[in-house]
């Protein structure tokens, strides 16, 4: 545990609450906000989280050991400006930028998520696939739809607010290079 803890790299200006669980080789870029009781677990290989991501409570980002190729290390890279909402479980192999994973959504390890995708609340996505840009997965039967390009930085207001509020009520992890 302590050995793993040392591998966690938190860039300056990132806000990472102390109560969250971070295991393994995890890099959190600057501008990210990680809420308390979020989980980021790097089992197979490192997880690299891009800038300005929000990881909310009970969200779980997991780089899991693949049963078919347990020895092959795999780097989970997550692009900038992603939002992982409350209770989402993400095991995707690759994540682009500006994606939103809504509450209680689940993405399995053989899914590649590109840019601007939205996995709506409660949608379970499994089975090998590559999500094209701006795909929206919604509804009980996980229908797919293509959305328009979203305006970038739409969650900047939220980020600013969280950066201001979270330090008032939580202990933060110190940035380590």
């Amino acid at each position: 545990m302590s050995r793993n803890e040392n591998k966690v790299k938190i860039m300056p200006k990132a806000i990472v609450c102390e109560d969250c669980i971070i295991q393994g080789d995890v890099t959190i870029s600057s501008g990210c906000v990680v809420h308390p009781s979020a989980q980021i677990i790097a089992e197979t290989g490192p997880i690299v989280i891009g800038e300005n991501c929000i990881i909310e409570e009970y969200a779980k980002i997991h780089n899991r050991i693949q049963p078919e190729s347990p020895d092959k290390p795999h780097i989970l890279t997550i692009g900038p400006n992603n939002i992982f909402e409350v209770g989402s479980v993400i095991e995707a192999s690759k994540i682009g930028e500006k994606n939103i994973f809504e509450c209680k959504s689940f993405v399995s390890s053989d899914v590649e998520v590109s840019n601007g995708c939205v996995i709506c609340a409660g949608c379970h996505l499994s089975g090998g696939q590559h999500l094209l840009e701006n795909t929206v997965i919604f509804g009980k039967h996980c229908q797919q739809r293509e959305a328009l390009d979203r305006i970038s930085g739409s969650h900047m207001l939220q980020l600013d607010f969280l950066r201001k509020i979270l330090p008032n009520y939580h202990h933060l992890r110190k940035a380590k290079q």
Partner: peptide, 9 residues
């Protein structure tokens, strides 16, 4: 708000 449909689509 559920499926992110918008009239712009």
């Amino acid at each position: 708000l559920a499926c992110r449909y918008s009239s712009r689509d």
